[in-house]
Design a binder for these strands. Sequence first.
DNA 1: TATATATCCGACTATTTTACTCAGATATTA
DNA 2: TAATATCTGAGTAAAATAGTCGGATATATA
Lengths: 158, 158
Amino acid sequence: MRLTTKGRYAVTAMLDLALHSHQGPTSLADISKRQEISLSYLEQLFAKLRKHELVSSVRGPGGGYKLSRESESIFIAEIIDAVNETIDATNCHGAGNCHKGDVCLTHHLWSDLSEQIHQFLSGISLADLVERNDIKAVADRQDAQERAQHEQVLAVIN
Amino acid sequence: MRLTTKGRYAVTAMLDLALHSHQGPTSLADISKRQEISLSYLEQLFAKLRKHELVSSVRGPGGGYKLSRESESIFIAEIIDAVNETIDATNCHGAGNCHKGDVCLTHHLWSDLSEQIHQFLSGISLADLVERNDIKAVADRQDAQERAQHEQVLAVIN
DNA sequence: TATATATCCGACTATTTTACTCAGATATTA
DNA sequence: TAATATCTGAGTAAAATAGTCGGATATATA
């Protein structure tokens, strides 16, 4: 099982999308700036998210990505599944042939753990995260930073 | 967060130790044969397990490793912690400085997930696993295989 | 219709981690 | 003293991660 930057980036980007969903499609360039994730890397991740029909794209100026469903019915487990192969903790990916063609000594333990993690992460939707106060606070801070940067750019130009 | 072969090997080896604890210290060579884990790799893992005082060693012939505590008070989370750095799912390892010196958008989610996994894995002791019927069945099968192999060796010698 | 903006796509690469191997030192029992 | 084991450190192949780079394609707008 893996939970690395890749899965975290994907969830972060999807949450950023959910937070800004009211203002039309969001470009990866915007997400890249706000969340400090390389644009090219985001493109790779969104190719996978699009294949799994979690987002849809609008090409051209003013375009970007939007959630392909309402945020209430997009669950964290789906996002991680889309970019990482799986959140399965067993070595045999559930096949049960991990030791000489049969289950290994600890197969059932990892199987239980996988179930536990999967239940936890598929019980949380993007909408749930958007509603959380601790996350709202972080989002507000990030938006304020973005506006401040924008004003600085304007000041330099004028 | 990672849960790969390394952590699984460590738990499997510790469980093997618990299952054979009544017959004195168990050599890594025995575990290597039963669980099909490379001896040299086991040596590396047990160096860490020993540093974390989960096992103690007896050198010389007839020696091997034994649990340094009773199996009731050795928990799976400890074993994984000992060989993997951590089972923390956050990028900042709990420090809260994952985004421009502050917490990132999804910090609290990963923090909650880590807590969830940690609670699950520290609620399970080696003794719990030894008592599980599905695991007993696997252990019995492995012991039977070992005896059969042993008899084959004897037959070849004689 | 030109231009800028954005998604799309594939190939390539540096770094890190995993999962080992190997050589040998050290301790202990018989 | 010989065999058995733990110990230790260094090295290494393969895989995954975390990107970069160059360019093609679609589309809104001036």
